[in-house]
């Protein structure tokens, strides 16, 4: 696993106006459009039930979209001639026969894909499961199943990786290892798409995030793009009320959170300090807080939740 093999038309994942309505009019994915570029880690985020798994299953040809299309390297998954060598996927931690050993699970996939058994041993060592390889999956922990699912995805040394909640059930060490591993894969030019319902898991690794809520795209972009303009400045002062009116006069966005504390948006700390000096205001604290994606995620999904989106209703 040193070089990313070529996929005919590149490893770009493209989701185009994808909609999936399950029976009883459950609109799981709703007119979703986004793309994932090769050489990057993209986090696919959304609370539980947002439609992440359904979208990934559409990309992999397991679920038929109601309308719209999902392609990898310009073609639909089922049209890829030797799919395992092009795309690796890990979808469910439960997709194993409990009475089969981890190694045998991988050997079955190798056999069907025409890969040598040697690949099974290689990927087992990559994910650190060599010692448990000959044990039945029944005895695996959730974390070990996740590693086995990841190993399955890596079998064909694919250029594109699609992983559904790969960090679920991993301990903090495992998550740290996973982050490094994703980075390593992307640096080799591979396309890595990972879904998660917890931002913290992808925040430090993902170059880009795609945020989904109730089947709809909320935001997509790089983390710096999405957090721009959301930093806040906290000011504590015995003259908070007076300072608030002075700042408002300067068109600074002010929020008084308690009698002695103000939270300001969209203004650098040096300007706040200057204004305090000019107005003769005594300051006890002047600090900047970087909004992390967690707040943003929360804010965005809250916003979408309160917006008049009728997830269940056909348009």
């Amino acid at each position: 696993m040193t070089s990313a093999p070529g996929l005919a038309a590149g490893g770009r994942i493209s989701v185009d106006r994808l909609t999936k309505v399950f029976s009883r009019r459950i609109r799981a994915v709703d007119d979703l459009t986004f793309s994932v570029e090769p050489g990057s880690v993209t986090g696919f985020l959304g609370p539980n039930g947002a439609g992440k798994t359904t979208t990934l299953r559409c990309i992999l040809g397991l679920v038929h979209p109601t309308s719209g299309r999902a392609t990898i390297g310009g073609v639909e998954y089922r049209a890829i001639p030797d799919p395992l060598r092009a795309v690796g996927a890990a979808l469910e931690s439960s997709g194993f026969h409990p009475a089969r050993t981890g190694r045998n699970h991988l050997r079955v996939v190798c056999r069907a894909a025409g890969l040598p058994d040697r690949r099974a041993d290689e990927v087992l060592s990559v994910v650190g499961l060599t010692d448990a390889a000959r044990r039945k999956v029944r005895g695996y922990s959730l974390g070990m199943r996740q590693r086995l699912a990841l190993a399955t995805a890596l079998l064909g040394d694919p250029r594109v990786l699609v992983l559904d909640e790969p960090a679920n059930g991993l301990d903090p060490d495992g998550i740290r290892w996973l982050r490094g591993f994703f980075r390593y894969l992307a640096d080799q030019g591979r396309t890595v798409l990972i879904s998660s319902h917890q931002l913290g898991e992808v925040q430090e690794t993902a170059d880009r995030v795609v945020i989904l809520h109730r089947g709809r795209l909320v935001r997509a972009g790089s983390i710096s793009e999405l957090t721009a303009g959301t930093d806040t400045v906290t000011v504590r002062s015995p003259q908070a009320a007076a300072f608030a009116s002075a700042l408002t006069a300067q068109r600074v966005q002010v929020q008084q959170v308690d009698p002695g504390t103000l939270v300001l948006r969209g203004v650098p700390t040096d300007r706040v300090g200057h204004l305090a000096f000019v107005h003769g205001i005594e300051l006890h604290e002047l600090s900047r807080r970087r909004a992390d994606l967690e707040d943003l995620f929360f804010a965005l999904t809250e916003q979408a939740a309160t917006a008049p989106v009728q997830a269940g209703a056909p348009r």
Binding site: G61, L62, E92, S94, G95, H97, H105, T152
Partner: peptide
């Protein structure tokens, strides 16, 4: 039926989309 019961069908169909 075991393929459906244990969802190994997912891996089977991913490997063999036809």
């Amino acid at each position: 039926t075991t393929e459906f019961r244990y969802q190994t069908i997912t891996a089977s169909v991913l490997t063999t989309p036809s």
